[in-house]
């Protein structure tokens, strides 16, 4: 069963509040994600924490990507090709947990987000499709 790649991809844009990590994003975010990956090494984390701007100079990322990293604007970073598992290296270096970092993307306070998760998480109702409003 072959599937039309254009139809396959077009449906991704119909999901509310979600950036699917497609090959297009992977291409745009290649260096951003590789930079983030470099923070897996303790000696790189030290250099990064000592001078973030200087550390970024060595990476062929766009200015927008660099600014979004400095701003820790994770939704923006997703738009610019960042992938969450790579971006996790940045927020882990900041000492943030997944719940803390993820709550910043949802626009909720950490407390409200945690309370939502303890109450069973975000309901899929109305969150499945923009077009169909379901």
């Amino acid at each position: 069963m072959t599937q039309d790649i254009h139809e396959y991809l077009a449906e991704f844009d119909d999901i509310p509040g979600t950036r699917v990590y497609t090959t297009k994003r992977a291409r745009a975010g290649y260096w951003l994600n590789q930079f983030a990956m470099s923070l897996m090494k303790a000696e790189n984390r030290e250099k990064w924490l000592a001078d973030e701007k200087a550390y970024l100079e060595d990476w062929p990322m766009t200015d927008e990507q660099k600014q979004a990293v400095l701003d820790r604007d994770y939704n923006r970073l997703l738009d610019l090709g960042g992938n969450i598992y790579f971006l996790a290296k940045i927020f882990s270096t900041d000492g943030l947990s997944f719940v803390q970092a993820v709550s910043t993307m949802s626009g909720m306070s950490e407390e409200d987000y945690k309370a939502m998760m303890m109450a069973g998480g975000r309901s899929p109702e109305g969150m499945r499709s923009i077009k169909e409003g379901r």
Binding site: I15, P16, T18, M105, S106, M116, G121, R122, P124
Partner: peptide, 8 residues
Amino acid sequence: QGPRAGLI
């Protein structure tokens, strides 16, 4: 990830 984070 994103504003829909936390979906269950």
